[in-house]
Design a protein around this nucleic acid. Structure first.
Length: 298
DNA sequence: CTCGGCCTGCTC
DNA sequence: GAGCAGGCCGAG
């Protein structure tokens, strides 16, 4: 589920609620999300510690503790819910905990934090600062930071034979983009998803760089995209789904040129795009324009 | 680099 | 019942 905008939304909510609270007690109900750490080790390391800050890098969340951090990755269906003890059974429509709630943290000040993950692709475990550093080191630049430059992006794409879609999903190229925002960025930049990295022009790379940043910022402003499973820690939905231009819109007319939005598979992922607005190697035809906003489908 | 696997639940 | 889903990792 959650890509950078959703994880950032979660971070912002949690950073209002968690810092300063102590993990008074905790329960682990399923071993898989903790692996390779054991349930006992996780509980031992986290119990009694105070939460200092909540940070994000790419799609990873960190609850920084006095010693080390709780590393959280939400995978496809992971969720974090924070609820006051009194309201416990009424955290949204869910009655928590349920059979998909794998970790529960009982915090000081009468708050409970739940980690829930239906498909169990997500992770939560305690890491040292050193382990955290190693993990983060393998990630490419944060797209919304000044470390993400057109020049650096260009260098990461040259000589690459794979599709730009695969490269955008590669967290070492740029960190935090997932399937939704890859498709939306490519549409807004007017670049076909199948285009090989090495064949992109500087103009295309530059447009993509801008589109990525614009889309992510706009999605954060709208608190992320809720297609089905994504809710923030207060059980609120995101609002960006209404602003998606191609993702999930296969068969609908393109909002720019009325060509039907197509869905196929690129980089082993469902890929949504407008063949007219995103001319590629196979279709050199440009978009059939309704108005004159050629360079700016967004 | 591409593919299958990891999981459950929902839609066709 | 098959196929698909917002992610990632390891095998070949």
């Amino acid at each position: 589920v959650p890509e950078l905008p959703e994880v950032e939304t979660i971070r912002r909510v949690l950073s209002e609620k968690l810092p300063g609270r102590r993990i008074l007690n905790l329960q682990t109900h399923h071993a898989k999300p903790l692996r390779p750490q054991s349930m006992a080790e996780f509980e031992k390391q986290a119990r009694g510690q105070r939460i200092v800050a909540v940070e994000r890098r790419a799609k990873y969340l960190f609850l920084r503790l006095e010693h080390g951090s709780l590393l959280v990755h939400l995978g496809m269906t992971g969720q974090l819910f924070a609820a006051p003890v009194v309201l416990r059974p009424a955290a949204g429509k869910l009655s928590l905990p349920d059979q998909h709630t794998h970790v529960i943290l009982f915090l000081s000040g009468g708050m409970i934090l739940y980690f829930r993950d239906i498909r169990r692709f997500g992770k939560i475990r305690w890491v040292t600062d050193e382990q955290m550093g190693e993990l983060l080191q393998r990630l490419g630049p944060e797209p919304l930071s000044s470390k993400f430059t057109v020049e650096g992006f260009r260098q990461a794409l040259t000589r690459r034979r794979t599709s730009i879609k695969a490269l955008l999903l590669n967290q070492a190229v740029v960190a935090g983009i997932g399937n939704i925002y890859a498709d939306e960025s490519l549409f807004r930049a007017g670049v076909a998803p199948q285009t090989r990295g090495a064949t992109l022009t500087l103009a295309q790379i530059s447009r993509l760089h801008t589109s990525i940043r614009r889309v992510l910022r706009e999605a954060i402003r709208h608190r992320g995209t809720t297609l089905s499973d994504y809710f923030d820690p207060e059980s609120r939905k995101g609002g960006f789904q209404a602003r998606l231009k191609v993702y999930g819109r296969e068969g609908e007319p393109c909002q720019v040129c009325r060509t039907l939005v197509r869905k196929d598979v690129t980089a082993q992922r469902g890929t949504h795009w407008c063949p007219a607005c995103q001319p590629g190697p196979k279709n050199k035809t440009g978009p059939r324009l309704l108005n004159k906003s050629r360079n700016n489908p967004a």
